[in-house]
Write a protein that binds this DNA or RNA. Structure first.
Length: 988
RNA sequence: GCCCGGGUGGUGAAAUUGGUAGACACGCAGGACUUAAAAUCCUGUGGAUAGUAAUAUCUGUGCGGGUUCAAGUCCCGCCCCGGGUACCA
């Protein structure tokens, strides 16, 4: 007996969460008698800032689906865990010396506690943490499987490396068709047999799926570590500003390129948002073309290029190779040496992103060398330029300035010739409508007159006939670097014996992270693990890099399938569980993972399937992207160079938002500036000067202010959003928080308030704009938080957080509660027969809600519930036959209040074991429809007609109506369109 | 730069996928209850013009064009914002 008040909400929510836990209602068994449904949220990284209101957005959605599917009769797996390895914890460790495991554990505990308060139906007994040795043991185990595999093109799948070795023993590699490095030599069985152990391993590395290779990295000598592109700004490290150089390093890599084709075609079999599929397709970047050798003039060397447009071969007027190309030094003539060296030096350390994005700044250098066009023996100059990347294709392009815009810009800039080889209305590269894939060939010898597509095929035949190149499918996707020069990651199950990488015995897993004295690289530039004392495998030193962040998250959904008890069985997941759960039915997470996590996970899933460990080819059947909740940051505005420093004695001056904006725009007028001066003086001297008027004061202190307005600027400084209410700053709290500003002077607006500026930014601790779900729950309860986050808008959309509308959701829940509570707060339900109107409201709601959940349109289902509660309130309906089905339908959204009402309605079992009520179409049938009557497409009137009325009758009735008569002025309309059950449009 | 997404009242948004633009909320305004405030309830609310009023007309979905009986929705060209761009997760 109570009102739906703050105290009551807390009481109800705490009570039910405790009961659910005690009864273990969320514990999921691998119960094969029921159909399964696997709902997964993307693994959170437990950051030190704790959970903010952005995190639960997707979790609430997946929880609604989980609860809904459960009351629809499915056995639902809905687990949660933590992607616990990562750079932030390590960065924190470097700064504070705290072991990352300690801070990570602490953060995880906070997350679990915060998640617990929202009422999620997770089966916590299945939790995984990637940094837990019991978990990463299996990550290491998977690495071992991949190390021991190669990709056989004949069977089109990964196989054991022993198959490859057997074949090498027999025939060398002449019959082997496997994915391997480009520079893999051809060897005979005899050669193979003569190889010593090291040669053999080096050779096998060309084939292994997990292998060592030289890869380009951003090396920062001062920090002794490798940096991500993210951490490099303008060629120097973001932290500290130390120089960064591009350097080749031996790194573990994953031969994901072997799976390029399957990753591409697999996209057609999964229900993912089209944009994400598109991004993966672009990332994989399949292009069909050919590789072609150009002989270097006066040399035996050749330069190999890849092109998709071999048809334009007669338009090649120069060649561009990457500054890192291996032949650069060799081919450069003495005269060009200096220029080339200088260019290479500059280009080398620029990031790929910079090199690709700076399209307007054209740069390059001539090597002095020439190659010969194999089709017409034309002599072609060879340039280097940084728009050509070494890592893509062959690192060399045959430039056709008449059909490629970058080549054209380059040719234009350096005055290189341009030969048109295509003719047609859209073939002129200087025109806006230029379309490279159009027209017919000209200036192209035997290709003349052919359509470009046909010409490609003809030219390819010629290439093959002349034996100067081969057809080739190229993928933009490169193999994935799998090593990190960091501490806080999975150690590799690898040690080195005489520089030969060898695997740790499976029975010795896991290789646990050793303790080290500091989380920094060693003095000699080795990774942090180099500091570990006495850390070795049977006397041999371990691999010192660790696995990247994506290692642990590339298989975690399999681990969840296995119950805690089964995990003791020494398997990464039991075969029974894998067979039952197969793959994730619904995966919810951000689209920022489109080309990282989601691609790597698909890759590992396929590899594990090839090796016979799992059943599914694809890990995530359906994917939904969730938008991000952004923060709204608040700013105070500090005016710079306005008051003389000697005079102000270091006191800062903060001015209210409207004035700051005027200063920024340069629209503040003279009296505004005068007020600024006057206010400063007034505040500076306290009450002393109040007797004098503004003009006088300003005149007196004229010299204390800068009157050159061009030198005056505004600096925006973050204010913690907890100190800002409705844009108004609590000035004293701000001064207390930022003691360096404790004696600052504030300039208020007319109403005597200090108004802050705001901006939408990422929600982050450093921007002081984090909103914690705990605070919302404290004020309104978890049910309101859940429904409000859904009510905010479509799940996929990003939006800034604001609590402006939260009262509406809270009021709805209270209204729903009040349907079955009288005004003294007493529970009251009627067993009377429902009216037809009440049944209509019920079934309309059930229909809409079910459809909306199936379409993941949760915001509209919340609205529908609101409409329903409004209508039932108006009818004063408290009938059990109406309320009870609604309680079940609402329970996935607001589980606490519904569980309470369910129990008040007399049920002893949890509402989770109820069955979702089906809607009945018979209550929704209408016999008439109110047609909008438009004139020339503009709605002018409404008219009701029976739904079975014929078009002709409607037409007559509409034309006869007064309103239409008014518009037609008696003349017959040009046309009249009647769409039954939709609209009538009269065209005049 | 390239790839992907988004832009609708003062605010969050909705719109049967080409068919009444602004459902549902917040906010605001007015009213009821109250000694008063809070809470609650009721009414109104895109903008402009005219009218005491019911109402009427025009205008309106980032900007400029187009297709159509009909465009927030489809097509072409721009502008702005967010994500990714290979060691953030």
């Amino acid at each position: 007996m109570a009102e739906y008040s703050k105290e009551e909400i807390k009481h109800i929510e705490v009570k039910w969460r405790k009961t659910w836990e005690e009864k273990g209602v969320y514990k999921v068994a691998n119960d094969t008698s029921k159909p399964k449904y696997y709902v997964l949220d993307m693994f959170p990284y437990p950051s030190g800032a704790g959970l903010h209101v952005g995190h639960p957005l997707g979790y609430i959605a997946s929880d609604i689906v989980s609860r809904y599917k459960r009351i629809k009769g499915f056995n639902v797996l809905h687990p949660m865990g933590f992607d616990a390895f990562g750079l932030p914890a390590e960065q924190y460790a470097i700064q504070t010396g705290q072991h990352p495991a300690v801070t990570t554990e602490k953060n995880i505990r906070t997350y679990i506690e915060q998640l617990g308060k929202i009422g999620f139906s997770y089966d916590w007994s299945r939790k995984v943490e990637t940094s837990d040795p019991e978990y990463y043991k299996w990550t290491q185990w998977i690495f071992i499987q991949l190390f021991n595999s190669f990709y056989n093109k004949k069977s089109d799948k990964a196989e054991s490396i022993t198959h490859l070795i057997a074949e090498l023993d027999q025939n060398g590699n002449k019959n082997i068709r496997a994915v391997c490095d480009d520079e893999t030599p051809s060897i005979t069985a005899a050669q193979w047999k003569n190889f010593n152990e090291q040669d053999r391993e080096n050779f096998l590395q060309h084939y292994r799926i997990a292998y060592l290779s030289e890869a380009m990295v951003n090396w920062c000598a001062a920090l002794g570590t490798v940096l991500s592109n993210d951490e490099v700004k303008d060629g120097v490290s973001e932290r500290g500003g130390y120089p960064v150089e591009r350097k080749k390093m031996w790194q573990w890599s994953m031969r994901i390129s072997a799976y390029a084709e399957r990753l591409l075609t697999g996209l057609d079999t999964i229900d993912w948002p089209e944009p994400v599929k598109e991004m993966q397709r672009n990332w994989i970047g399949k292009s069909v073309g050919c590789e072609l050798d150009f002989k270097i003039e006066n040399s035996e060397e050749k330069i190999r290029v890849f092109t998709t447009r071999i048809d334009t071969i007669y338009g090649v007027t120069f060649m561009v190779i990457a500054p890192e190309h291996e032949l650069v030094n060799q081919i450069t003539t003495a005269a060009q040496k200096e220029e080339i060296t200088r260019y290479v030096e500059i280009a080398k350390n620029r990031s790929e992103r910079e090199r690709m994005s700076e399209v307007k700044r054209i740069s390059g250098a001539f090597t002095g060398a020439y190659v010969i066009n194999p089709f017409n023996q034309a002599k072609i100059p060879v340039w280097i330029a940084d728009y050509v990347l070494a890592g893509y294709g062959t690192g060399a392009v045959m430039a056709v300035p008449s059909s490629d815009t970058r080549d054209y810009a380059f040719a234009n800039h350096f005055n290189l010739p341009i030969i048109n080889v295509l003719e047609g209305p859209t073939c002129d590269i200087t025109k806006d409508n230029f379309e490279p894939k159009s027209g017919k060939m000209i200036n192209s010898d035997f290709l003349n007159g052919l359509d470009w597509k046909v010409a490609i095929e003809k030219a390819l035949e010629k290439v093959e006939a002349l034996n100067i190149g081969t057809r080739k499918v190229n993928y933009r996707m490169r193999d994935a670097i799998f090593g990190r020069q960091r501490y806080w990651g999975e150690p590799f199950p690898v040690y080195f014996e005489n520089e030969i990488p060898k695997l740790v015995d499976i029975n010795d897993l896991p290789v646990t992270l050793p303790e080290i004295d500091a989380y920094k690289p060693t003095e000699t530039g080795e990774p942090p693990l180099g500091r570990a004392k006495g850390w070795n495998y049977k006397g041999y030193s371990y691999e010192l890099t660790t696995m990247p962040g994506w290692a642990g998250s590339s298989w975690y959904w399999f681990r969840y399938m296995t119950t805690q008890e089964e995990r003791a069985k020494e398997v990464f997941a039991t075969p029974e569980a894998l067979k039952y759960w197969k793959e994730v039915d619904l995966y919810i997470g951000g689209s920022e993972h489109a080309t990282g996590h989601l691609l790597y996970s698909r890759f590992w899933c396929k590899a594990l399937k090839d090796l016979g460990f799992v059943e599914s080819e694809e890990p995530f059947k359906k994917l939904i992207n969730q938008g991000h909740i952004q923060g709204v940051s608040k700013f105070v505005h500090r005016i710079e160079n306005f008051v003389n420093k000697d005079f102000s004695k270091g006191r800062e001056y903060f001015i209210t938002h409207s004035v700051a904006t005027q200063i920024k725009k340069g629209t503040l007028d003279d009296s505004g500036w005068r007020d600024l001066q006057f206010n400063f003086i007034k505040e500076f001297y306290g009450q002393l000067e109040l007797l004098t008027d503004v003009e006088e004061v300003c005149q007196k202190y004229k010299d204390q202010f800068n009157h050159n307005r061009k030198e005056i600027s505004i600096t925006d400084i973050h204010a913690d959003i907890s100190m800002v209410d409705n844009d108004v700053l609590a000035v004293e709290r701000f001064k207390h928080w930022r003691t360096e500003y404790s004696n600052a002077i504030f300039y208020f607006d007319n109403s005597g308030k200090y108004t802050c500026g705001s901006e939408v930014e990422k929600m982050s601790k450093s921007k002081y704009n984090v909103v914690n779900p705990d605070d919302i729950i404290e004020g309104y309860g978890a049910d309101t938080l859940r429904m409000y986050e859904m009510f905010l808008g479509p799940l996929e959309q990003s939006k800034p957080w604001n609590t402006n509308g939260i009262d509406g959701v809270y009021k709805f829940l209270r209204r729903f509660w009040n349907l079955v509570h009288d005004n003294t707060g007493k529970f009251k339900v009627s067993d009377a027969e429902p009216t037809r109107e009440e049944l209509k409201v019920l079934h309309k709601t059930l229909k809409k809600v079910e459809q909306d959940i199936e379409n993941f349109s949760f915001n509209t289902s919340v609205s529908e519930f609101m409409i329903c509660a409004n209508e039932l309130s108006a009818m004063k309906c408290n009938k059990r036959s109406i309320i009870e089905p609604l309680v079940i339908a609402l329970s996935p959204f607001a589980p606490h209040i519904c569980e309470e009402l369910w129990s008040l309605l007399g049920h002893t079992d949890t509402v989770l074991n109820a069955t979702f009520p089906l809607f009945d179409e018979q209550y929704l049938k209408e016999s008439t429809f109110t047609y909008p009557i438009s004139i020339n497409g503009k709605m002018r009137a409404e008219m009701s007609f029976p739904l079975d009325m014929t078009k002709e009758d409607i037409e007559k009735a509409v034309l006869a109506s007064e309103i239409v008569q008014k518009w037609t002025e008696g003349k017959p309309p040009k046309k009249i369109i009647v769409v039954p059950g939709r609209i009538v449009n009269v065209v005049l």
